[in-house]
Design a protein around this nucleic acid. Sequence first.
DNA 1: TCCTATGTTGTATG
DNA 2: ACATACAACATAGG
Length: 272
Amino acid sequence: MPELAEVEWFRKQWDPGLGQRIEDVLLHDKKRIFRGGDAAALQKALTGATLERSEARGKQMLFVAKSPRGKTRAWLGLHLGMTGNLRVEKPDFAPAKHDHLVLRQKKQALVFKDARLFGRVLFGEGKEPPEWWAKQAPDLLGTAFTKTALADFLKRRKKAPIKAVLLMQERFPGIGNWMADEILWRAGIHPAQPAGTLDAKEIGALFRDIRGVCRDALRIIGKNWGDPPDSWLFNHRWQKGGTCPRTGAKLKHATIGGRTTCWSPARQKLRS
DNA sequence: TCCTATGTTGTATG
DNA sequence: ACATACAACATAGG
């Protein structure tokens, strides 16, 4: 479920717990969601710590907690995978089947749920943010993401379909299946077009629409989980017999880059 | 029963 | 070493 804007929205669901002490940490499924990380150390470090702040970069979230007396910090990383979510419950909440991590506080409990277990919990301790956070790719709306950086990356991945390339988190953090389709639809580029064959005009459009979709998604979904307008591909892509909101033509679907892909054949044509 | 799912990662191959 | 393709992971819902 969660891409850039959904992750940002879920991150804020734990805002009621900021500035408050964590009384207790409940771990449900230790096996998969921690992927070999030290769940016991996480539990120990977070118990009694005060939740200070949180951030999201792409699909990765970071929650920072301050130890009771020391200067050290506990760094909690959450990735929602395909089906993860964050929510708030009453302080005496008892975790159900898929609630893998619960931070209990006086006024509420902060709950991480993930049915399919594709999500993951990361952890680190110390003064500096851990490696897994520091090495996150630069924000697509920041200054480090330039048209030149985009063109260079496309050149390196020249044989791969552009759809698959947009899903690479090392360069496009936060872009997922629906955002990639939305971007290519706006830019008028066929999802199977090899990345190295895009001309300067297409790269310009792609750059513009990557940032445009990120901005719009954060504004509409990231803020209040609002519904995207019908002028987007989003509301038509899963509908049976769905049509392109710009051309009215019937949308096409196929597996490209290993993922179900939707495009409007009237405005996205494959070139040779 | 079979197919699908807004994601990543390990492995095989070129 | 790098790029590409795809199965595997685990569960729920149509």
